[in-house]
């Protein structure tokens, strides 16, 4: 085929490509470059200032023999699984309830979404007070006469992570609800009618017809929730500061603490590289299935 018959692919939509150059550069330099830099320096013994003094896998050895890191990972796992399942369930149930053409839908939607307008720090502080045994729920219930009532998750190392989970759920379920609601509104009314004519019960319609149709909505929600899980930091700082003891530490806090409090950049970089690795292990197979497959269909 002669060259002039087809315009050069590189110059198609030229203005759009030029416009996206800044973002491409940012992505390459800041994200990819920063990531590479971090990984390289995680093999050094950099303390307060980055130094190219390689020590092999020493930082990783220390990382995996530190109980604070192990506890951080366990906490993230518990928090992550619970957060993922519960926000999807709560978000969807709330959305389904709101979708029943109830009165004051706008009011309810605003109330449910409102916590999302608060930062994690504010959310954390509010829940710290609510869950404080001397001022919050426990003292109110005891004041009502149940003297032996005990509810102090933030001061009990075994369940402290659930105290944080409550605050996280309260903050983010509203957003998931809104996304789900938008998805539900996108389902054609005809499908509901068809299901009703066939005599399928409502819950079955939701479970086997509506939810599979809402797949893209679920994926959006999933991505939003997962990024929230991996970077959870401020909530912990505001609610417990990692305590009692080190029972509510999370990986992001471990990274911050070792980089800035302990003045040990190498250790912080090693921890953040492990976090990146964990994310990649989850994301890559999923992205492969999700996007790799579609291409073949053409």
């Amino acid at each position: 085929m002669p060259a002039h018959a087809r315009p050069n692919q590189l110059f198609r939509n030229l203005s759009a490509k030029i416009a996206s150059i800044p973002m491409i550069l940012t992505a390459l330099v800041v994200f990819v470059g920063g990531t590479g830099w971090t990984i390289v320096y995680s093999f050094t013994n950099s303390k307060l200032l980055p130094r190219l003094n390689f020590v092999g896998l020493d930082q990783y050895d220390r990382l995996w023999s530190t109980s604070k890191w192990i506890i951080s990972l366990q906490n993230l796992l518990i928090y992550g699984v619970c957060m993922l399942v519960l926000s999807l369930v709560i978000g969807f149930v709330l959305a389904a309830l709101l979708d029943q053409k109830i009165r004051f839908e706008n009011t309810f939607r605003t109330i449910f979404l409102y916590p999302f307008a608060l930062s994690f720090i504010v959310t954390g502080l509010v829940w710290q007070w609510i869950l404080n045994p001397d001022f919050g729920i426990q003292s109110i219930v005891r004041g009502l006469g149940w003297e032996s009532f005990n509810f102090d998750p933030l001061y009990n190392a075994d369940i402290v992570i659930f105290g944080i989970l409550i605050a996280g759920l309260w903050q983010s379920s509203g957003l998931i609800m809104c996304i789900m609601l938008a998805g539900l509104r996108g389902i054609d009314e005809e499908i509901w009618k068809a299901a009703r004519i066939d005599g399928i019960p409502t819950w079955k319609t939701y479970l086997f017809i509506v939810i599979p149709m809402m797949r893209p909505v679920f994926i959006t929600a999933l991505v939003l929730i997962s990024t929230g899980i991996v970077r959870v930091y401020d909530l912990v700082v505001a609610q417990t500061g990692g305590g009692p003891g080190i029972a509510s530490e999370v990986p992001a806090k471990y990274v911050y603490d070792s980089m800035f409090l302990a003045q040990n950049l190498g250790q912080g970089f090693a921890a953040s590289t492990m976090m990146l690795l964990a994310v990649i292990i989850v994301i890559v197979p999923w992205a492969y299935l999700e996007f790799g497959g579609r291409k073949r269909h053409g």
């Binding site: 303390k47 530190t66 109980s67 604070k68 305590g243 003891g245 080190i246 603490d257 070792s258 409090l261 302990a262 003045q263 040990n264 250790q267």
Partner: peptide, 13 residues
């Protein structure tokens, strides 16, 4: 500070 921080973690636990 690195050592102090490790000691902090140990003793607070």
């Amino acid at each position: 500070e690195d050592t102090n921080n490790q000691l902090n973690d140990l003793f607070v636990e």
